[in-house]
Amino acid sequence: MSSFQLNLNPLKEPLGFIKVLEWVASIFAFATCGGFKGKTEILVSCPKVPENKTITATFGYPFRLNQASFQASPVNVCNISWNNLVLVGDYASSAQFYVTFAVFVFLYCITALLLYLGYTNLYRDSRKLPMIIFGFLNMILWGGNAWFVYKETSLHSPSNTSASNTQGGIPPTGI
């Protein structure tokens, strides 16, 4: 095997330049999702009190909204205690998957750039190495596509009509 020789010329080619763009995009992906903070506010107007009150629920990564409770400056607004009211939903698994995938893409891009820039001479001198790498990546791509088709179609599990009833769907009619 050839020794590591850093050559920055491949960055001028599409393969190297696109790897740099992917690396930067992965940084933005996990930084924007992982550092996100937000809030939702409710403006409450009580019939007996002339002024309006604002109730705020703050949330952020990993988006466990069912743990974000509404906080009011006075505990009781319009004679209602707001401490136990929370937002609906737990999106932690999706957000954590997104951030984890972005971190793996970041690490992959760094590794691919180092290998591409450091071993360019080995890559260009061998005719089999690019074909092996392309074949392996193509196999991963086709396997991922097949898994996605399997999981997102009725091949994985039969459709469940009761799931639409719990999510606000229209119940099936018995014709």
Rank of each mutant, 00 (worst) to 15 (best):
V20Q: 04
T173N: 11
R127T: 11
A163F: 11
A72T: 04
Y150T: 07
G169T: 05
L87T: 02
A57K: 01
F4I: 03
K19R: 10
H156G: 08
G89F: 07
N7R: 05
S3M: 12
A72M: 03
G135S: 11
L117E: 03
K37A: 13
G168E: 12
P50Q: 13
T40Y: 05
T32P: 02
K19N: 09
L114Q: 08
N83L: 15
K151T: 06
R124I: 05
F101E: 15
Y119W: 13
N52Q: 15
P74W: 02
C33R: 11
F101W: 14
C33F: 08
L114E: 08
A92P: 09
W147M: 15
Q67F: 05
G143H: 00
E13K: 06
K53A: 14
M139Q: 10
T120D: 09
L117S: 02
K128Y: 07
Y116D: 04
F4D: 00
T153K: 11
L85V: 10
Q5G: 02
N83I: 10
A57H: 00
E13L: 04
Y98N: 13
L141Y: 02
L113G: 02
Y98L: 15
T58Q: 05
F4T: 01
E41Q: 14
F36P: 12
F63Y: 04
S157T: 08
G169I: 08
I80M: 09
N121E: 14
S26L: 00
P130Y: 01
A29H: 04
K37R: 14
C46G: 07
L122V: 02
S93I: 10
G118S: 07
I133V: 10
S2F: 05
G89I: 09
